[in-house]
Amino acid sequence: MAKVSMTVNGKAASGEAEGRMLLSSFLREELGLTGTHVGCDTSQCGACVVHVDGKAVKACTMLAMEAEGSEVSTIEGQANADGSLNVIQQAFQDHHGLQCGFCTPGMVMSAAALLKDNPKPSEAEIRHYLEGNLCRCTGYHNIVKAIMAASGQDVSSIAAE
């Protein structure tokens, strides 16, 4: 066991970790930030996506030790300062971009990373970007629509509200 320290959602966080502790486990078990979900063990589902030093990563495929000294943001840190949903979260609610909610934290974190690099992505760019985020509930329709809406694009012509 060794001490590992990082900044999580703007606050200093530290804990004891074995070398084999994953960042996802550190967040969930040491810090109680259970919004980061683990849906697979082959680094494909993306339910665990968080940002480390501003970049989207899969928290289940990174050791806690690797994040030593890093700035980590998770779904728990995404809402506005007053607690209201941020633009992406609000768009997901407005456009029914989630059902069971399990993939949702990773989807929101991936969407945030996408929009940071590409403020007005096309439908095709969004679909391609979500290659590493699986959703089994929504058929992706309303997720893609929500991300387009969050980027300020008119989605009224997309079928079915």
Partner: peptide, 18 residues
């Protein structure tokens, strides 16, 4: 709008593994 969404969108869901 779905009321359950707020907790799911903010990481406040309560799944069994949580």
């Amino acid at each position: 709008k779905r009321r359950e969404d707020v907790r799911f969108l903010t990481g406040a869901g309560n799944y069994t593994d949580d």
